[in-house]
Design a protein around this nucleic acid. Sequence first.
DNA 1: TAATAAAATAGTAATCATTACTGATTTGGG
DNA 2: CCCAAATCAGTAATGATTACTATTTTATTA
Lengths: 129, 129
Amino acid sequence: MKNFSRQREAILNVLHSTDVHPTAGWVYERVRETIPNISLGTVYRNLAELTRSGEILSLSVGDGYEHYDGNSAPHAHLHCRICGSIEDAELESDSLADAARCRGFTPDTSVYIAYGVCAECNSKKEKQI
Amino acid sequence: MKNFSRQREAILNVLHSTDVHPTAGWVYERVRETIPNISLGTVYRNLAELTRSGEILSLSVGDGYEHYDGNSAPHAHLHCRICGSIEDAELESDSLADAARCRGFTPDTSVYIAYGVCAECNSKKEKQI
DNA sequence: TAATAAAATAGTAATCATTACTGATTTGGG
DNA sequence: CCCAAATCAGTAATGATTACTATTTTATTA
């Protein structure tokens, strides 16, 4: 395979070796330990492409930073309003609120966003073909 | 009651009379029809306070804008990657993916975020009391 | 291997949604 | 009516992200 540049591979490694759901800046600092002169733009570009291809997940919790997750399997995120941490939680058939409380997390609000293509845009795409 | 300024009431009205999950800029333009010299900063400040108090919902879909929702009841959001629309969907016991597909929406990724206080910060708060 | 085209990079400059700030205005209680 | 607290309009500053360009790396073909 090896379709990846050294830089992209290092970025992916950083994401796979942590569970803190880091920002682009955090990834940048970590990758610099291996590739000292990597550019921040390179980090942003590769994070965007990895997100587009579905290899990683992009997460907006509303703290002004985009967060990234090397685990692209469907799961929930528990975002602490105080310390800003983002924990993973299994998405079982039982309510997420229960799952959160089991972890000692006290949720007050929750947001579910599905990304995809809406009905209208779907029909427009079919017409084009 | 009437704890609200004229400006905040107008902002809340705009949110309650639409289902497009608008950005701050969109709200600003709509409120200006009623209060022409309202300040953009006022819109931002009131949206933040209404979010903090739980009266409205703040939604980051990752398009570079924060979106707001006058309906603070728990429900899901379907964000189209093509046209950028955000639709509401009921959050029933059955899978969200099914609910989305029923509306003609084709989901590829989904993100669940619960907001609250994590276990560690919870215990720190108890110690303070 | 050498030549060439295509893709990715480093470094820097520009963008722009959001926040911070300041001096004026409004509001409510006594 | 007066005062203090809250809110406001208007504008300046911030900072995460994106855009850009010249250079380097990678892949392809002969």
